Simulated assay, not measured.
Amino acid sequence: MSLFASLLPGDGWEPVSGGESATEVFRRGDVFAKCCGVAGVDELIAERDRVEWLAGTSVPGARVLDWIEWSEGAGGADGSGGARGADGSRGAALLTSAVPGVAAVELPWSEKLVAGFADALRAVHSLPVESCPFLRPLPDVIAQAEDVVRRGAVNPDFLREDVQAVPPAELLARIQAEAPEIAAKAAGDLVVCHGDACLPNFLFDPSTLELTGVIDVGRLGVADRYTDLSLVPAQLHDEWSVDASAFFAAYGLPEPDAQRLAFYLLLDPLTWG
């Protein structure tokens, strides 16, 4: 049995998937448990706080059901912290409600689904900026990319094919050189962004194609809307072999800024690692 599973309350937890930074996900009925070691606790806290915030908005999503930390101390998970694994490891678990529906990526392409994805992303972007306590300023995101590049942790599979052979340091230099111009453009166009606006993170009713929930919001925060929009064209092409013109028309931006799309599409994969 996984160490993480043994520390969760009760029995019957089934593994769903593994993840980065030793993160593991389990499910029991309508409850998900995302668990991590000590290195991932800060990120999991950030996700917990964002899930709680989003649950108080008009955008559907998961609800936080419990938060468990284990560290040196007691020897079992009681929901209030203080649990410790047999090897003395520390970590945490975020328990959330399951979100109904099917991920967009698992549904067949249709004009209605693409329009629904556009509506869902616009709904996130329409949340009041002044009420969102989470910020993702461009300098912070670039600093994150600098750290990933410095550690040699860039995953080339996340990059566009045309730049996979380019050294990450050179890609980062392009980002740094263009950042002032992008920041000036974005200054008046900051919205609440999902932060990882990918098709697997938007769930729909398979019959009505109505949005049922938004998940994986660990990067949610106020940022340039193109942080999210830049990820859409490649996804639509890769998953359904369609261009993004219908999406952008439904979103209400028939002529998107090509420079900002390209900038954030290059920046995003440098921040994972």
Rank of each mutant, 00 (worst) to 15 (best):
S71H: 12
A179N: 01
P128V: 11
S17D: 12
V149D: 04
P206K: 01
G81I: 12
R151H: 05
F204D: 08
V25A: 05
S241Y: 10
G10N: 08
V192E: 09
V232P: 04
S80I: 11
H125G: 09
D11I: 05
T208C: 07
R28I: 11
R174P: 00
A46N: 14
F32Y: 10
A179S: 14
L107K: 00
G273Q: 06
F158K: 04
F248Y: 15
L8I: 08
T271L: 03
A104Y: 02
V163H: 00
A22L: 13
D257H: 07
L209A: 10
A77D: 05
V102Q: 10
F263P: 00
L211H: 02
A74V: 12
L203C: 03
D189F: 02
V114A: 07
D87W: 10
G101H: 01
L261G: 14
M1D: 13
R150G: 12
V114Q: 05
A118T: 15
G10Y: 13
A145F: 00
E130L: 12
L3S: 12
Y226A: 02
Q144F: 01
G12R: 12
R136L: 11
R219F: 08
S89V: 14
A103K: 00
I182E: 00
V217D: 05
S241I: 08
L159E: 08
D189T: 06
R160K: 04
A46C: 06
L159K: 02
S80G: 13
L267H: 05
